[in-house]
Write a protein that binds this DNA or RNA. Sequence first.
DNA 1: ATTTATAGTGTTTAAAAGACACTTATAAAG
DNA 2: CTTTATAAGTGTCTTTTAAACACTATAAAT
Lengths: 245, 245
Amino acid sequence: MKVSDNLEVAKNANLQLNYYQKEDQVLLAVDCIIFGFDKKDLKILLIKRNFEPEKGKWSLIGGFLKKNENLDQAAVRVLKTLTGLSDIYMEQLYTYSKVDRDPGQRTISVCYYALIDVDAHNFDGIQIDSASWIELKNAPELIFDHDEMVQKAIARLRRKAMTNPIGFELLPEKFTMRQLQNLYESILDKKLDKRNFINKINSLDVLVKLDEKDMTVSRKGAYLYIFDKEKYEKKVEEDGFNFKI
Amino acid sequence: MKVSDNLEVAKNANLQLNYYQKEDQVLLAVDCIIFGFDKKDLKILLIKRNFEPEKGKWSLIGGFLKKNENLDQAAVRVLKTLTGLSDIYMEQLYTYSKVDRDPGQRTISVCYYALIDVDAHNFDGIQIDSASWIELKNAPELIFDHDEMVQKAIARLRRKAMTNPIGFELLPEKFTMRQLQNLYESILDKKLDKRNFINKINSLDVLVKLDEKDMTVSRKGAYLYIFDKEKYEKKVEEDGFNFKI
DNA sequence: ATTTATAGTGTTTAAAAGACACTTATAAAG
DNA sequence: CTTTATAAGTGTCTTTTAAACACTATAAAT
């Protein structure tokens, strides 16, 4: 008895239970672009694959959707399993489906991106030795269509960071104006005018300036700020406020 | 011999061929939100399901991904099969995956939206009697998570139409300024100032004003315009031009 | 010739974005 | 203690873009 016959038997028996007959099933992968910001540079977390196919090459982290979870949960699980991190900003990006995108097996990949404050989370939790933070600019070639995914994630991050307060997810809770500006300069990949940037940010009126200073950055030190999420949400709700940089 | 046993045998035999062992497979559906613009109103194409589950209820059109095609191709095929239309603007929107979203069977749905000029395409091609163009504002409740999909599609269309020349996909090749304004008013669901709108559009400098007039709209008649796609693309390439309404 | 319905047309004001340079606070060095 | 070095902090003017606003023009129908 051949494998295919056996599958047919199983399928046919199973189908009595289902409405959608004879449709093809596929493997659903979840791949994650993990962005981190480290003082001056935007980085992504990559791994050197220690399994086939494409063993030894650089890749995004990923996993497979399980029957009893939705995609958001799968993305959270993948991130948690491989980095130990939880309670992280994640967002679905796009679904990739080229027929031969994965030479191992027909696989569709739903891509997510995550934003992490590299400093605040100690990375003892990283479950894989082969994972490294790599500057976006120096990123190596990745397997499959992962480069395409990263490009789309950067475009999304760029757009989204200009219209939503997600940049703060990449910063420590307390940050200086210069850090915030550095972050936006990294995301947009261009220099911004310091005075215009600060005026802009202040006009949004969603930061709280602390008395505390960060003395590591200069002789003079720089005041620390925090993002006032409650205030932001209240403004959105009450005045239809639009975060816009 | 139970079905599950049989499946296990088949699976195990099969796995020698595959890299990714013991991962769950799922059904991948493709659902389409089809937008049409009919003189004054933004509409979507809906069907009354004549099959289980949820037979008799309103739904988006959809189908299932096949082994030998990617998602874009599946979306094109679904649209073609059910409406006879091809060469239509389509774009992937989002992937929906709630565990119990489809009571029939565990199904993940990748959602697309399409933009159609209702007038230009004669709908003799429509393959299903049960399909109807329904004004967005009067749309009935849809099955599963289809309402959520439509909401997201509207949001996407709104954003995208403000920053890309996709609105023209919803209009006849030749259109009046008023039609274009009506379209944007429908998409944004708010009134726009006629003079400001025309000034804005003219400043973009991507329309060609024809000598021809549409005499059906008023005694005076209204000049017809066409979108100059070549000019637009040249501007984008050469000057980094940004379509922005 | 008059009516009627919609097309077509500019200017002024307000708001937002962009360009631009000097002073200040503090720690470290001497 | 004085000097020095370093990045922080701060405002104004100009340009561009968005928004408010109302009358005239055209052609068909009567």
